[in-house]
Nucleic acid binder design. Structure first.
Length: 191
DNA sequence: AAGAAGATTAAA
DNA sequence: TTAATCTTCTTG
């Protein structure tokens, strides 16, 4: 797909308004992407792949754009990313929030106790749990298995806001890079 | 082999 | 503001 050839920062904005879908034996869940963060590999101190650090975990970041990168964080959460950029350039886009579309009942089943729809997917750990994303998905390809993405809403540039990324206080000069993008005034954005 | 830190979340 | 919780990576 041509989409994956876009530069990472462009793709991070382009993904806003697209529908992310996951189908497995439990059923279908999906949501419109409303918030993303770009991680630009070697030069980006906030990225797992800073300085081309290549380990068992970050290996998939070096793969083709459109590869799925999931990882476990803080002892309890899975984060879902899509690899981007040229082959062997370890860049990725973290999906931080979506607006639920399909399978809202299934999402609630996966997250017992959550009542409000907005709470289902307004954060990277939350959407991963609601959508059923696990470490097993790391290394799989988008649109080539249970996980796919498709055009939905057209988001104009003036509807997109940007700002510093969340949770990367250790990243020194990269702390303030405006690599977080979201749809203005959308109630499903995190925080 | 052991220890520290982390692209978070929910509860106080 | 803080505890929860465990994989991943670094250090010894």
């Amino acid at each position: 797909m041509d989409l994956w050839n876009l530069p990472t920062l462009t793709l991070a904005k382009k993904l806003l308004g697209m529908e992310l879908v996951h189908e497995n034996q439990e059923g279908i869940t999906s949501g419109i992407i409303v918030e993303t963060e770009a991680y630009l590999g070697p030069e980006d101190r906030a990225a797992h792949s800073y300085g081309n650090r290549r380990t068992a975990r970050t290996e998939v970041m070096f793969h083709h754009a459109g590869t799925i990168y999931t990882y476990f964080i803080y002892g309890m959460h899975v984060c879902f990313n899509i690899v981007s950029g040229p082959l062997d350039k370890p860049e990725a886009i973290l999906i931080r929030a979506i607006q639920p579309v399909k399978g809202i009942e299934l999402m609630k089943k996966r997250r017992i106790g959550v009542k409000k729809e907005v709470q289902l997917t307004n954060g990277p750990g939350k959407l991963s749990k609601s959508m059923g994303f696990t470490l097993e998905h790391s290394g799989q390809k988008m649109n080539d298995g249970g996980i796919s993405i498709q055009e939905r809403l057209e988001i104009h540039p003036y509807e997109i806001a940007s700002g510093p990324r969340i949770g990367i206080q250790y990243a020194e000069e990269a702390v303030h890079f405006p690599y977080r993008f979201w749809i203005k005034n959308n109630p499903y954005v995190s925080r």
